[in-house]
Simulated scan of single mutants.
Amino acid sequence: MSTIDNIYVKVYKDNIKIHVKDNGLNYIFERFYRVDKSRSKKTGGIGGGLTVVKSIVDLHNGNIEVKSKLNEGSEFIVTLPKLNL
């Protein structure tokens, strides 16, 4: 199982970056993958969380990248363009 260790946001001139660090995940963008095989729709989740995140980021003309180290964890970086209002 994975836990989130750190979340922070950096604001730049043209974009915003959201950083989320965890302590380790496998198969992060695989649709319907569950880390805990005992979980089901009835016990919570369908394993589509990061697939949904990627779809939302894409719809906002953003980008999501992952930096990962085996047995250490991953950092997810979501970059979204700033709105010029």
Rank of each mutant, 00 (worst) to 15 (best):
I28A: 10
S68A: 13
N71P: 00
V11S: 11
P81T: 15
V57T: 11
V78S: 08
L50C: 03
D5G: 09
F29V: 06
V57H: 06
I64G: 12
K41S: 06
T3L: 14
R34I: 00
S2H: 06
K37L: 05
L80P: 08
H60V: 03
I4V: 15
I18Y: 08
D22C: 00
N6Q: 15
K13L: 06
Y8S: 13
G49E: 10
E72D: 12
G45K: 01
N63G: 06
V78Q: 03
L85E: 08
F32W: 01
D5L: 12
N84Q: 05
N6S: 13
E72W: 03
E72M: 10
G48L: 05
S2A: 11
V57C: 07
K42G: 02
K37P: 05
D58L: 11
K13E: 15
N61V: 06
G47Y: 02
K82C: 14
S55T: 12
K54N: 13
D14Q: 14
I77T: 15
E30G: 01
M1I: 09
R39E: 11
I7K: 11
F32V: 05
K10P: 02
Y12C: 04
G48I: 00
H60L: 13
I56S: 06
K21H: 10
I16N: 07
K41D: 01
N71Q: 15
L83D: 14
S40I: 01
F32R: 12
L50V: 02
N26D: 11
L80Q: 10
L25V: 14
R34A: 03
V57W: 03
V57N: 10
N23C: 02
K67M: 13
V20E: 01
H19C: 09
P81S: 14
N26H: 04
S40V: 01
K42N: 04
E30T: 14
F32M: 15
T43G: 02
I7Y: 00
S68P: 01
T79N: 02
F29Q: 06
I46S: 11
D14R: 14
G47F: 04
K69S: 05
G44S: 11
V57K: 03
N71W: 07
K21F: 01
K41V: 03
S55I: 01
I46T: 13
F32L: 12
G24E: 05
I46V: 14
Y8T: 04
N15R: 13
N63P: 00
V52R: 06
V35N: 12
R34S: 02
K42S: 01
K41Q: 05
E72F: 04
E72C: 08
I28S: 04
I7R: 10
G73Y: 04
Y27S: 07
E30F: 01
